[in-house]
């Protein structure tokens, strides 16, 4: 067990070395969230405090998922992903390693957004420890989601397109920039099925002490459980990918 965890860490370390400076990772994982955050916080004045946690959630989501999109796609294209299947490690270890590199990248990237948000909206999180826990869980959850999505994409050349088709609607339906309570009913129902909704609600509660309609305990539990589920589904997909 410990051996597998250590090897997951080695996979993550290797991925960070290889892919953190790739254009796709930097542009969608760092530049876009920062630009988006600045645009919204500077423009929105009075509701900036309400927007800040949503934008932090969005930054985590984009940075965590971008890393896996680049690394897994590239490795499958050049054939080096199969190398991982030749090592004496479990498929879960491989899934965890891939998620861990996205997680570490997501944490680093989200810190930038947190700092920018604090500079524009100098409001401390109402519960700092809970806020840190939510950041960690949200990043884990987004990382495993991104890895799963990368494995589901059949044509590697279409990965970024597919990722953005899924990610962008989530921005508008998960409570990041539009309050969930002001969404029309069909959109509200749709938001319940989006994983990003729960991490956004959790971060907002830890930051402002309020939530839209998902209680914090529920949003935290679902964030954690869905993150674990994504990880396990990915390990099953890796096994099933063997012809």
């Amino acid at each position: 067990m410990l051996g597998n965890l250590v090897r997951s860490f080695y996979i993550a370390k290797k991925d960070l070395k290889e892919y953190y400076l790739k254009p796709g990772t930097m542009s969608w994982g760092v530049v876009f969230p920062i630009a988006f955050t600045l645009a919204f916080l500077i423009r929105r004045g009075g509701i900036a405090a309400w927007l800040a946690p949503g934008l932090i959630s969005m930054a985590i989501f984009f940075s965590s998922t971008s890393m896996s999109a680049v690394s897994i796609v590239f490795e499958r294209k050049v054939g080096s992903f199969e190398r991982l299947l030749l090592f004496p490690v479990s498929y879960t270890c491989i899934a965890l390693g891939k998620s861990l590199s996205s997680f570490l990248f997501g944490i680093l990237s989200s810190l930038t957004t947190v700092i920018i948000a604090y500079m524009i909206v100098p409001v401390m999180p109402s519960n700092l420890l809970l806020f840190i826990l939510c950041i960690i869980l949200a990043t884990f959850h987004s990382s495993t989601f991104g890895v799963l999505l990368a494995f589901l994409v059949k044509d590697p050349s279409q990965t970024m397109t597919i990722f953005n088709i899924i990610r962008f609607p989530m921005i508008f339906l998960s409570g990041i920039i539009i309050p969930l309570n002001s969404l029309p009913l069909p959109a509200k129902i749709a938001s319940i099925f989006l994983p990003l909704t729960y991490s956004t609600e959790a971060i907002r509660y830890s930051y402002l002490g309020t939530y839209d309609f998902i209680p914090p305990v529920l949003s935290l539990c679902i964030t954690l459980l869905s993150g674990l589920a994504f990880l396990l589904i990915t390990s099953v997909l890796i096994e099933k990918s063997i012809p």
């Binding site: 290797k14 070395k17 290889e18 050049v78 054939g79 080096s80 190398r83 991982l84």
Partner: peptide
């Protein structure tokens, strides 16, 4: 196909192999 890791050096590629084999 020679499918080692493109963005790693020769040294880092071998070290990674060693890490993954414990």
């Amino acid at each position: 196909i020679s499918n080692l890791y493109y963005e790693l050096s020769c040294w880092d590629n071998l070290l990674f192999m060693g890490e993954m084999h414990g």
